[in-house]
Each structure stands twice: as structure tokens, then as C-alpha cells.
């Protein structure tokens, strides 16, 4: 059994589960709560979150951050990344995160540039 030892702490040791099965249910509850918060915010769309930060509404920032939180717990606890050696973890996660951030940054900047060109063009595109 030694090779299947699981790390049973989440939230940096704040919550410690007794068994792996218990941890699975705990993570499910956490993911469900996050999803319910997302859906509730998406349904209500509080006006207070319509302000903008870095070209995105606060509401959208909250959605993106909550998504990353969910992605973390799916990868770390459902896919057992928490139990892998750090070398494997870094090889997979850092590579992906670096390339994805790079791609997104380039494409979004370019998309915004084209929007500006269309908007300020001499010819109207609305006909």
C-alpha cells in the first residue's frame, strides 16, 4: 500500500481528511460550491461588478479566477497531481501554463488591435 500513499491535506493543511475517499467527497463539495457561486453570479450579474480592470469586467475576472481554482483542484486531487513527484508536476504544469499564457497574451492583444482598426477605419463596417 505504501506506493499508493495519498496526501490528504487541502487548503495548505487547513483541511485534513482521514481517507482518500473522504477527500474525494470533500473536493466534490468544494467544486460544487464554487460552481454554484459562478452560476449565481452569472444569473444575477450584480451591477457592482460591472466596473473594469485591465479591459475586463470584475465579474469576468471573478469567473476566470474561480475557473482556475476549480482546474487546480481537479488536477491536484482528482488527477492526483498532488501525489506525483515535483519533477513530473513541473514538467506538465509549467510547460502548459507558460505556453498558454504566451498564446493568450499574443492573440488577445492582436484581436484588440484589429478591433481598433475596424472601429477607427474610414469605411464603416456597419451596413
Amino acid at each position: 500500500m505504501a506506493e499508493h500513499a495519498h496526501k490528504l491535506e487541502i487548503f495548505r493543511g487547513l483541511v485534513k481528511f482521514k481517507s482518500n475517499t473522504q477527500k474525494i467527497w470533500g473536493v466534490l463539495i468544494f467544486l460544487s460550491i464554487v460552481t454554484i457561486i459562478e452560476v449565481a453570479l452569472g444569473y444575477i450579474k450584480p451591477d457592482i461588478l460591472n466596473g473594469k480592470f485591465l479591459a475586463l469586467k470584475w465579474l469576468n475576472w471573478i469567473f476566470i479566477i474561480l475557473t482556475l481554482v476549480k482546474a487546480y483542484y481537479i488536477t491536484w486531487d482528482f488527477m492526483h497531481m498532488r501525489d506525483e513527484v515535483s519533477g513530473l508536476r513541473r514538467a506538465v504544469v509549467w510547460t502548459g501554463v507558460f505556453l498558454i499564457i504566451y498564446l493568450i497574451a499574443i492573440l488577445l492583444v492582436e484581436g484588440d488591435y484589429i478591433y481598433e482598426v475596424y472601429k477607427n477605419a474610414a469605411v464603416s463596417f456597419d451596413f
Partner: peptide, 10 residues
């Protein structure tokens, strides 16, 4: 990301 590109474009 391509979706995001098109969305920022429009």
C-alpha cells in the same frame, strides 16, 4: 485563445 481573439476583434 482563437475564440478570445475573435471576441476581442468583435
Amino acid at each position: 485563445a482563437a475564440y478570445g481573439f475573435s471576441r476581442f476583434k468583435f
